[in-house]
């Protein structure tokens, strides 16, 4: 199986993307920002279609759109986190723009708009070329490095924003940087698992890690590990079963891990819930 170049490319691109998505997802869940991640993933769809309509490289549209909307969401939120109603409204409009670009694109001279839409929505990790794979890997590593750099203050700013601000942590700036990183990760993961499905790679491994441990760095590592396991097992499963699309296989593994994380605490009886994750501190901020 590893003799095939497309498998090697998929693993090369998929592993850093998974590590980055798992780690970012840990913070996304901790900050209750999964809806923002969802919106950004749909923005990726609009960005790709805008690029297709304009006839430029899809990746330009992907990154420009997700980073722009991430900055917009951070700005709308100001010092607090953006509330989900604002996200919902922005995101309806972004999808509406996606429809507009789809209209413009399918009216142009380009054929096969269904294929672009399908690849953007559902991804095609087996369709990555070697250069795309290396680029994806490089961006994934850069995102991981940036996240590790801000992990400590971000954790502080997330768990207790008032205290962090009092201690001189730049809470607003960190929130902004984090959303931009999330945007970059969303644009990157869109190419592997697609705009509709990348949310699973962000939410499911992180949700499982939060269920299983309250220790932040352990949870961060666990979340990345689950995401990598999802991508690897998903790729193997999709290779073995040809009718199974790789994106579905990856998401299937991720969802199973999450479901298992619900069952394990019930079986082992003692509750590993974090003391601070059961309280509603994120509502009071």
């Amino acid at each position: 199986m590893f003799a095939h170049e497309f498998i090697r490319n998929a693993l090369l691109a998929g592993t850093p993307i998974a590590v980055a998505s798992g780690a970012i997802g840990y913070f996304v869940v901790l900050r209750s920002q999964v809806f923002a991640a969802d919106a950004l993933s749909h923005v990726a769809f609009t960005g790709a279609l805008a690029a297709a309509a304009a006839g430029i490289d899809l990746r330009v549209g992907l990154f420009a759109a997700t980073i722009f909307v991430a900055a917009l969401l951070a700005a709308l939120g100001g010092r607090a986190r953006v509330d989900d109603v604002t996200i919902g409204v922005v995101f309806v409009w972004v999808l509406g723009l996606g429809v507009l670009f789809l209209d413009i694109f399918s009216r142009g001279s380009h054929g096969g708009n269904g294929i672009v839409a399908s690849r953007t929505l559902f991804g095609s990790i087996f369709g990555l070329g070697p250069r795309q794979a290396w680029l994806a890997a490089a961006i994934g590593v850069a995102v991981i490095a940036a996240l590790l750099l801000i992990a400590r203050p971000l954790l502080f700013a997330t768990v207790d924003p008032q205290m962090a601000a009092a201690r001189g942590v730049r809470v607003t700036l960190l929130g902004f940087l984090f959303l931009v990183l999330l945007g970059i990760d969303a644009a990157e993961a869109t190419q592997a698992v697609g705009a509709l499905l990348l949310l699973g790679l962000i939410a499911a491994p992180a949700g499982a890690a939060h269920k299983l441990t309250a220790r932040p760095y352990f949870g961060l590592a666990l979340s990345s590990l689950f995401a990598v396991a999802s991508v690897w097992l998903g790729i193997v499963a999709a290779y073995v079963i040809p009718s199974l699309p790789p994106s579905t296989a990856i998401l299937g593994v991720a969802s199973s891990i999450y479901a298992a994380a619900f069952v394990i605490p019930l079986v082992s009886r003692q509750s590993p819930q974090a003391p601070w994750s059961t309280t509603s501190w994120s509502e009071t901020s």
Binding site: V34, F35, D38, L199, G200, A203, G207, I250, L251, S255
Partner: peptide
């Protein structure tokens, strides 16, 4: 529980869309 709730919703959505695909 807000953070767990958002994770559950996200995972349900992604799993459902993956099934649909």
């Amino acid at each position: 529980n807000p953070s767990q709730e958002s994770a559950v919703i996200g995972a349900v959505q992604a799993a459902a869309l993956a099934l649909g695909f």
